[in-house]
Design a protein around this nucleic acid. Structure first.
Lengths: 150, 150
DNA sequence: GTCTTGGCTCAAGTCCACTTGAGGTCAAGA
DNA sequence: TCTTGACCTCAAGTGGACTTGAGCCAAGAC
């Protein structure tokens, strides 16, 4: 089984070597070592890194990503179905982000006309009206939209 | 002209006193002082803070917000039209964010089926034209959607 | 034999938008 | 007079995801 150096993985995955070392420290990827101490990666690390990147794009933290990766089976290589299971929940997350952004934009459209920027009424400064109708919804909100007035 | 204490502004704007002091240090808001050194704010600071919050929700950094506020006229109080001018450009920004997220979601839809997560082909890990066209430290998502927008 | 390239570790730094803590001042009320 | 509460400054801390720097090692090319 052909192994990859950190430089090769870095180039092929588009992830800096320092980031790869950091991911290893965080328990997201693993590597064996040569006699001299250099990291050697299996090819499968590339798919794992693709997953990490996709999950980051959806807005997951590295901690959440580590937790998701931990549910992969140890005894066999992950299948397409395994990866699909992990990413199935992301759709709701994205839908919610899109919905919140769309409402913010529509609020902007009505606010541009009035220029009010009222602390109480303006949808732009108060996306809380739209988003944080508490419960599960708000948790998935884009960090951009989480700045809700107290 | 009635002036507001930092506590009053904090309660009415929903912004912590420490944040108000920080904003002053960053040149976003101004305050006069009493003989004893306590801050006194004009009522207009409330609208300014509403603007700051709205701009943050759209994804602007404090630096960008400061630049925008600097274009307000000194010689007269800002009108509704002034505020509307400042926020007019935000619509494009929101449209771009929505477009990027929608593309990501649609990529997810096709990826859930195949579970491929290929580094080369997967729309999820490569939201294509949104990706790293700006140099160092670039993640794979539009800068507008980064968790910490610059 | 030495030069270059690529790798290693560990600690510290970076960015942003704040918050926290220590230590002190000021004004009003009991 | 004492106490309380609100306020002040300045320095340092926070969190997430890395990057940077210093100092060192190992293998291949010449």
């Amino acid at each position: 089984m052909e192994l990859l150096t950190i430089g090769e993985v870095s180039r092929r995955a588009g992830v800096a070597p320092s980031a790869l070392r950091y991911y290893e420290q965080q328990g997201l990827v693993a590597a064996t070592r040569t006699a001299g101490g250099a990291r050697r990666y299996q090819r499968s690390v590339l798919r794992r890194l693709a997953f990490v990147r996709a999950a980051q794009n959806v807005g997951l933290s590295l901690g959440e990503i580590r937790a998701a990766l931990a549910t992969l089976p140890d005894e066999r290589p992950p299948t397409a179905r395994d990866w699909a299971r992990l990413s199935a929940g992301w759709r709701d997350r994205l839908d919610e982000q899109i919905r919140a952004l769309t409402q913010l934009r529509d609020g902007l459209d009505s606010c541009i006309g009035c220029g009010c920027l009222s602390l109480d009424r303006c949808a732009l400064s108060n996306p809380g009206d739209l988003a944080a109708r508490d419960g599960a919804g708000a948790r998935w909100l884009s960090p951009l939209l989480r700045r809700v007035p107290q």
